[in-house]
Design a binder for these strands. Structure first.
Lengths: 228, 228
DNA sequence: CAAGGTGGTGACAATTTGGTGACAAAATCA
DNA sequence: TGATTTTGTCACCAAATTGTCACCACCTTG
C-alpha cells in the first residue's frame, strides 16, 4: 500500500511519513504542488495525503488535476477555520479531510477508512460468528478461543462466504459461484465440500449444528448469538 | 436486505428509515444502545447505521459488542468534531462513518458500498399476505409470527405466485405457466400441488380458508386480515 | 336420468436430492 | 523427483419430492 504525502512543512511531512510507515504503508513525499503531481504520475500511489496550503500549485488545484485523471483517494490536511476550502475540496472530489492538529492514530484510521471506501482492501481480518472465529489468512478455525482445525483453501473459502452471511441461506448456485467462480463447480462438488467442512467443524457431523442444510435451496451458517 | 437504524433522535431516525426504505431496504429502528443490541440479535440485519451519541449504552460500546460476535457492517453517524470517537470506532471495527449533516443519496451510496465490500449476498425478502408470511429463502411459512411449515420447492413456488397476487384469481393456465414454465405441467399436477399445499396451510383442508377454488377458472389466495 | 366435465383425495411409482465412503486426478511441497 | 495434501469424480443409499393414476362426489346439461 503506497501513500503520497504532500506538505511543505518538512517536519510535519516527516512525522506523517513516520506514522504511515509504521502503519505498514510505503511512503513517498512531495513538498510543493508541482512535485506532487509529478510524484503522483510517477508512483501511482494508493492514497494521497494533501496539505491544502502549498507553494507553486495550490492544494485544491492539485486535487482537481488528480481527480481529472483518476480516483486515487485523497485526504486533505487543513487548519481550523479553513471551512471554505474544505467544502470546495470535498466538492472537487477529495475523499476526506483532517484538521490540524491531529493524532497519528487518527491519520491512520482515516487513511484506512478512505481506502476501504474506495474498495482498496488491505487485509481481511479474522471473521467472527457466534463462538466461532475464522482467520482466513491462516485458514484456521477457533472455537471458544481454542484452535479447532486447519482448513484447506476451498473449505476456508466456503466458510468465509457463509460467515459473511451468517444466518442467511445461500443458494447452491450462489455458493458455487463464490467459491469456484462463474465457470466451474457443480452440485456434487459443493456436496462434497460441505461434507468435508462439516466433518471438521461439527461435533457430530450426522447432526449438523453449525452448517445447516435448507433442502431444495442451499446451506446456511446457523445464526446464534450467546447473550452478552 | 435488512438495515438496523440506531439513533436517539426520533426525527432523524425517521428520515433515515424513509431514505433506506425507498432504496429498497427493510428497516428496523432502535433508539438506545441496549435496544439496539437486542434488535441486532433478534433481527440479524445486514447493515447497521449507528449514531455514536446514544443513551443507555454508548455507540462505541454497541459497536464493540457487535464486533465481538459478527462482522455485520456498521456505518457510524457522527457530528463534526467527533474525530476522536470516529477514530476509535474505526479501530474497533466500524466499516465507515458519515458526518452529519449528509444527503440521503450519500447515505444510500455508502450503505451499498459497505455491503458490496462486505461480500453480503442479497436474499429475497419475505412475502406477506394478511396474517401469513412466506420466507422464500428458507421456504418457510409463518402464521401470526409462528413457524407453520416448511414447503417443498414447487409448493413454495405456487404460494409465491399466489401471494404476489393476493386476492386475485389466477387461472389454472397462468399458474401452470408460472410454476412449471411453458413446456411442462398439466391440470392434474396443479390439482395435486394445490392439494398438498392446502394440507400444509389450511387448518381444515376440507374447508379451504386461504387457498380458495374458483370453479371453472382457477385459484386465489384470499386476503385475511390478522385477528386483532 | 345418464353422460360428461370438474375438482378433491389417497395410493403408489418414478425421479430427484442430499449424505457418505472410496478412489483417482491434480496440485503442492520437500 | 517422490510423497503428501487437496480436489474432483463416482457409486450407493435413504429420504424427500414430484408425477401418475384410479376413484369419488358434485354439478351441469341434453
Amino acid at each position: 500500500m503506497k501513500a503520497l504525502i504532500v506538505d511543505d512543512d518538512l517536519v510535519l511531512a516527516d512525522v506523517l511519513s513516520f506514522t504511515l510507515r509504521r502503519a505498514g504503508f510505503q511512503v513517498v513525499t512531495a513538498h510543493d504542488g508541482q512535485t506532487a503531481l509529478d510524484a503522483w504520475r510517477q508512483e501511482n500511489p494508493d492514497l494521497i495525503i494533501l496539505d491544502l496550503n502549498l507553494p507553486k500549485l495550490d492544494g485544491l488545484t492539485v486535487c482537481q488535476r488528480i481527480r481529472a485523471q483518476a480516483q486515487t483517494p485523497i485526504i486533505m490536511l487543513t487548519v481550523r477555520g479553513d471551512d471554505e476550502d474544505v467544502v470546495r475540496g470535498l466538492e472537487i472530489g477529495a475523499d476526506d479531510y483532517i484538521t490540524k492538529p491531529f493524532s497519528p492514530r487518527q491519520l491512520v484510521a482515516r487513511a484506512q477508512a478512505v481506502l476501504r471506501r474506495a474498495g482498496i482492501t488491505p487485509v481481511p481480518g479474522p471473521l467472527v460468528a457466534g463462538d466461532m472465529t475464522l482467520d482466513p489468512s491462516r485458514r484456521e478455525v477457533y472455537r471458544a478461543g481454542q484452535l479447532l482445525t486447519q482448513l484447506t483453501p476451498l473449505e476456508c473459502r466456503l466458510l468465509e462466504v457463509l460467515m459473511l452471511n451468517t444466518g442467511h441461506v445461500l443458494t447452491a448456485d450462489t455458493l458455487i459461484n463464490q467459491i469456484w467462480g462463474p465457470a466451474g463447480g457443480d452440485r456434487t462438488m459443493l456436496k462434497q465440500l460441505v461434507h468435508r467442512l462439516r466433518s471438521k467443524l461439527e461435533p457430530d457431523p450426522a447432526l449438523p449444528v453449525y452448517l445447516e442444510t435448507v433442502p431444495g435451496v442451499g446451506y446456511a451458517l446457523v445464526y446464534r448469538t450467546p447473550e452478552i
